[in-house]
Design a protein around this nucleic acid. Structure first.
Ligand SMILES: [Zn+2]
Ligand SMILES: [Zn+2]
Length: 747
DNA sequence: AGCACGCCGACT
DNA sequence: GTCGGCGTGCTC
């Protein structure tokens, strides 16, 4: 008998105090089956839990009486590769999550179904030449005879299909199977979510700009440089065609590609394009697939049948061995940030994966994040590639702003400016369509002056102050408090109102003003039912309404050719949201929304209503100038020390007991200050505690502390140390701590 | 997280 | 007398 082997196991318990590797005895009978990266069942603190095998050892420090054996092996093949295990450890260090949380992100598609898909077909259970004889025996059961005849004529039908075709119940069919006159054969089939055949039609010839970009990226792949490319190209500039060309070359070189898109709605058209070009080597991963489909796609990736993986956020963990090319399309999208558990950003994970495997990365966007763009300047480290021209020389939509302050001065107290109403009326008359866009994402009660557009901001953080029911205005970063004002601090006007309107209110008013117009509304309320989203869009596309009113979900990727007018009801809700990225989000949103107008033959028009028409983010969107926006925004970020000039970590405390959270938040601040003494005097800033913008979620009250510092490593160490001290001082289990490294939103 | 162990109030 | 409340500790 050989020496005892111990398995190193990460248990699937997502809490910090069991976040380490445990040793277990590998019993002799499991020794042949157990492999690195498989899931197992182990005894743990008096119960059975799932664990991940992350190593083996011949020795252990753990005393014999503590050691317990692995009880069972769950997988036939590993679900975690060595590369993903390295990535999980990186995630723990970078995002301050647990190993179990990180590993769970990676195996989620493989979790559910363990059985392969199968298909059962029916064949006659006797030789062909005996058919007449069998039918003769069945002459007193006409239904059974008919089934036999059908099965002989069309062998291999499923029981259900056979019964349906003959028009009998499935009991008749099973009776024949029971008699042995029909024989069932079960074969395994792959569940293919997108059965699309390659067309064989070669892609279009690249424009010189496209060809240059593709050429540069291909050169990096060929010379095996681990280079990151920031690919900047407006909507319609043909980024996808560049991806396709680069991927083609990668395929020839035997390199695998991973490409992510920000949301499921955008996968559809992309999958079509990819499968038409590359067929079955494309695998798709997103949460809208059935469990079986997801499992099968995941298997195809793992065993190497698929060389191109396309998916949403969690697809960055696709188990392809040694990816050679990672593409993050629309890299600026906040949807790439996971909002719970391990709060990772798919772009950052992809960059890390590329570093580990020496892959090339493409970060594609029309409105690149400041973080990425500033790393793509002359000094690097990214290479900047841009496409300036659109493929079809369609004119850009005509964009203009409407100054809502002027409407106030004219005595118009409504939601709509006169100019917008006139335009809508004109479009109704011309039988063209209008989209009215309302931003609700990141909505907070912000007080705005309707005479001058002024919004009170925190003197320390430059963040809009939000209204609280205790009649204070507060900064959600540092908890600066101002009493509610009755007069504008800028112009002394008393015309102060909350910024923004709901979709229902807008719909009401529009119906009132245009009683005979067809109006559809698309928001969280009207799309909660499954399929409602698609239904509303179809109705609008079919011309069943003149006006579509909607939120965020309207902004992306839609191609509505008869829409010639897009109205942004109030740009200020985005511009003044209490987030240091408010201006960036405004620029991105307006640019994206503008792209919805004039998709068809007729040119489009965009009207943006705002109290701040002179704001640089709005002006830059109007002029389609990313560079103007970037230059201005970088000045402000630098001044205030926000990313990309610093890093942030947000720590959220929550509990059903409001007093507990508040006192906990102040204690945590003390612990962080104490931890900070170990770092140099110019260590990170500790802002807050402050009530979180969404102060109460699902009966839980939330307070937050924001850490801001130049060095990412020190910032993380400070957070970890502060929380350790905090947990050593108070162990109330009703208080939970969430750490959000590099938050994308502060809600 | 979740289970065991442990020490105090009202119940057959 | 004990059944069970949930505060604290630990998990190979
Ligand atoms: Zn004012
Ligand atoms: Zn502040």
């Amino acid at each position: 008998m050989s020496e005892q082997v111990y398995a190193e196991i990460v248990v699937d318990v997502p809490v910090r105090n069991v976040d380490r590797v445990f040793s277990y005895i590998v019993p002799a009978d499991l020794f042949p089956a157990i492999k690195f990266g498989m899931r197992v069942i182990v005894p743990f603190a008096g119960r059975k839990v799932t664990g991940y095998v992350v190593g083996f050892s011949g020795i252990t420090q753990v005393s014999q009486e503590k050691l317990k054996p692995v009880l069972a092996v769950l997988d036939n093949e590993p679900v975690i590769t060595e590369e993903l295990w390295t990535l999980a450890r990186w995630m723990k260090a970078y995002y301050l999550c647990t190993l179990a949380q990180a590993l769970k992100c990676m195996v989620s598609p493989a979790v559910r179904v363990k059985a392969a898909g199968s298909y059962t077909g029916l064949w006659i259970g006797f030789a062909d030449n005996q058919l007449a004889q069998v039918l003769a025996k069945l002459n007193r059961s006409p239904k059974q005879s008919a089934v036999i005849k059908a099965a002989a004529g069309q062998p291999g039908l499923s029981p259900k299909a056979l019964a349906d075709q003959v028009g009998v119940s499935s009991a008749t069919v099973s009776a024949l199977v029971g008699k042995g006159l029909l024989q069932a054969r079960t074969t395994s089939v792959r569940r293919n979510p997108y059965p699309i055949k390659p067309t064989g039609i070669p892609g279009p010839v690249l424009t010189p700009e496209q060809a240059y970009c593709a050429g540069e990226i291909i050169r990096a792949i060929e010379s095996s440089q681990s280079q990151v490319f920031a690919l900047h190209g407006i909507t319609g500039s043909g980024k996808t065609e560049i991806y396709l060309n680069v991927i083609a070359r990668a395929l020839v070189l035997g390199r695998k590609t991973l490409i992510t898109v920000p949301e499921i709605a955008l996968t559809g058209q992309m999958v079509n394009t990819f499968k038409e070009r590359y067929g079955d080597t494309v695998a798709v991963l997103h949460s809208a697939l059935s469990a079986g489909e997801r499992y099968d796609e995941w298997q195809r990736i793992r065993n190497g049948d698929s060389k191109i993986v396309l998916g949403t956020r969690s697809a960055v963990f696709a188990p392809l061995s040694g990816p050679g090319l990672l593409i993050i399309d629309e890299e600026h999208e906040a949807a790439y940030k996971q909002d719970d558990q391990a709060r990772y950003h798919a772009r950052e994970v992809a960059l890390q994966r590329a570093k580990l495997s020496g892959a090339v990365v493409i970060l594609g966007s029309a409105t690149m994040s400041l973080e990425s763009y500033c790393r793509a300047q002359k000094e690097g480290p990214y290479r900047y590639l841009s496409i300036e021209n659109r493929i079809e020389q369609k004119p850009l939509p005509q964009i203009k702003t409407i100054d809502l302050r002027a409407e106030t001065h004219k005595g118009n107290p409504g939601i709509f400016s006169l100019a917008l109403l006139q335009k809508i009326e004109e479009k109704i008359r011309l039988k063209e369509q209008t989209i009215l866009f309302i931003n609700r994402r990141g909505f907070s009660p912000i007080v705005i002056c309707r005479d001058c557009g002024f919004v009170l901001k925190c003197p320390h953080c430059d963040i809009s102050l939000t209204y609280h029911s205790d009649l204070t205005l507060r900064c959600h970063y540092c908890n600066y408090i101002s009493p509610v004002i009755n007069k504008c601090s800028n112009c002394a006007s008393e015309q102060l109102r909350f910024a923004g309107t709901g979709t229902q209110k807008v719909e009401e008013e529009i119906r009132h003003i245009f009683p005979s117009a067809g109006v559809l509304r698309m928001d969280a309320d009207t799309t909660s039912r499954k399929g409602a989203h698609a239904e509303i869009l179809k109705n609008f596309l079919d011309g069943k309404a003149d006006i579509l009113i909607g939120t965020q979900m309207l902004a992306k990727g839609l191609n509505l050719p008869n829409v010639t007018l897009v109205g942004v009801i109030n740009a200020d809700t985005t511009l003044h949201m209490p987030d240091f990225r408010a201006a960036e989000k405004t620029f991105q949103l307006l640019t994206q929304v503008a792209g919805r107008a004039g998709r068809g033959e007729k040119p489009g028009e965009v009207i943006i209503q705002t109290y701040n028409p002179e704001h640089y983010s709005i002006k830059a969107a109007l002029n389609n100038s990313y560079k103007d926006f970037y230059a201005q925004e970088m000045i402000i970020r630098r001044e205030l020390g926000y990313p990309p000039f610093s890093r942030l970590i947000r720590i959220i405390l929550s509990s059903t007991q409001s007093a507990l959270v508040q006192s906990g938040a102040f204690l945590l601040k003390e612990c962080l200050l104490e931890a900070q003494r170990d770092f140099n005097p110019h260590g990170p800033d500790i802002l807050g505690p402050a009530p979180a913008p969404l102060h109460k979620i699902k009966e839980k009250y939330r307070w937050q502390i924001v850490l801001k510092g130049k060095q990412a490593l020190i910032l993380r160490q400070l957070a970890a140390k502060g929380i350790d001290i905090f947990e050593s001082r108070q162990g109330n289990r009703l208080l939970s701590i969430i750490v959000d490294v590099e938050p994308q939103n502060m809600m």
